[in-house]
């Protein structure tokens, strides 16, 4: 309840100044925070991957390697230098585009730049995530809003119960069940999404259907529940009641008074769930053998390719954080209060 006295007028002059570039200020602040976070994440990743003294060179060569061979490999991989030096070297490399060489490459007997290996796969992952996001946003908004408008009735129950069920399932379960249905039983779609390197995944759409559906599953369910909750809350706000008391048409009340205010929190939620796609993509790509960044990461972890894990993980984290900022920016643009305060 606002009880600011009329005796003190709000600082008009302050408002004018801040109104100049509040959005730019916000973006700058968030970017700075993001860079700081990324730096900390890079340190954590570096430390995390090198926690055990158990040695990357040994893992690459396998159990039968002689100590001499391991020493040689270590020198080759640059593991004989002290940790801080290696960290800075890696970080510097990342910033200049040189992600180092993969251990798989070393095992095969030569240098194999990581960037070359993954550049194609980045696009593939983008395609998968992009299509999923493009489908998720309108679907979750539509279903969430409809469920809220019909709250308590049959349609809402149906949507709520099915989303509660799906949201509990891990991606690989959803994916496996989908494969069982569409491949084993119906024989409509391929169970794996192997595509030749450097081919455009969009040129073979049926390869994408199941992975997209799998990724869509849990994130869509989560988004629907939250959009619904936000809309229900907006519909029960005092200003919505007031709009009805003013005799406004129901359509106007729902769109201009409820939806308009439910949109910002919904966008935030959707953005968060898009971030979760980044996490879910790893399992999905592995399940369908889809040649993307996620599968690359899993393969690298399996052979303990430290350098590759570090670089790929950092890339994915950067993308994740970038999405975060984009979402916050969108919310600030949508909510006037945040623009004029702070």
């Amino acid at each position: 309840m606002s009880s600011t006295s009329d005796l003190a007028t709000p600082g008009l002059h302050l408002l004018r100044e801040r109104r100049e570039h509040p959005v730019l200020l916000f973006v700058a602040r968030r970017l700075a925070a993001a860079i700081a976070t990324l730096l900390i994440v890079s340190i954590l990743v570096f430390v995390g991957t090198e926690v055990l003294p158990g040695d990357a060179a040994g893992a690459v060569l396998g159990r039968n390697a002689t100590p001499a061979q391991v020493e040689e490999m270590r020198a080759l991989m640059g593991l004989d230098r002290p940790a801080p030096e290696r960290y800075l070297d890696w970080l510097g490399g990342v910033l200049t585009g040189d992600l180092g060489n993969s251990a798989a490459g070393f095992a095969a007997g030569g240098e194999s730049p990581i960037w070359d290996e993954i550049s194609g796969k980045i696009a593939n992952s983008f395609a998968l995530a992009g299509i999923t996001a493009a489908l998720m946003i309108p679907l979750s908004l539509l279903l969430g809003i409809v469920a809220a408008l019909r709250a308590g009735r049959a349609l809402d129950h149906a949507i709520s119960i099915s989303s509660l069920a799906i949201i509990s399932l891990p991606e690989f379960i959803i994916g496996s069940l989908l494969i069982l249905v569409f491949f084993s039983w119906l024989d409509l779609l391929p169970p794996v999404s192997l595509i030749a390197p450097d081919t455009n995944p969009l040129s073979q759409p049926d390869v994408l259907v199941l992975p997209v559906l799998t990724l869509l599953g849990a994130s869509l369910a989560a988004s629907i529940r939250m959009v619904r909750a936000g809309m229900v809350e907006a519909l029960s706000a005092e200003y919505v009641t007031m709009a009805r008391l003013n005799g406004f048409r129901e359509r106007m009340v729902v769109t201009r008074y409820a939806l308009r205010n439910a949109l910002a929190p919904s966008v935030q939620v959707l953005a968060q769930n898009i971030q979760y796609l980044v996490g879910g993509i790893v399992v999905t790509e592995y399940l369908f053998n889809y040649p993307g960044l996620g599968k690359e990461l899993v393969d690298a972890v399996a052979i303990r390719d430290v350098r590759e894990v570090q670089s790929v993980a950092l890339l994915i984290a950067a993308f994740y954080i970038g999405l975060n900022i984009a979402a916050d920016l969108l919310v600030v643009l949508l909510v006037p209060k945040l623009r004029t305060q702070r």
Binding site: L44, G48, T49, Y276, V282, R304, A313, A317, Y320
Partner: peptide
């Protein structure tokens, strides 16, 4: 906790497995 939450959980586990087995 902000830093931890800004990193996908599965990714974190994978990094840990790489380093610690």
């Amino acid at each position: 906790s902000d830093v931890m939450l800004s990193f996908p959980a599965l990714l974190f586990l994978l990094v840990l497995v790489t380093g610690a087995g």
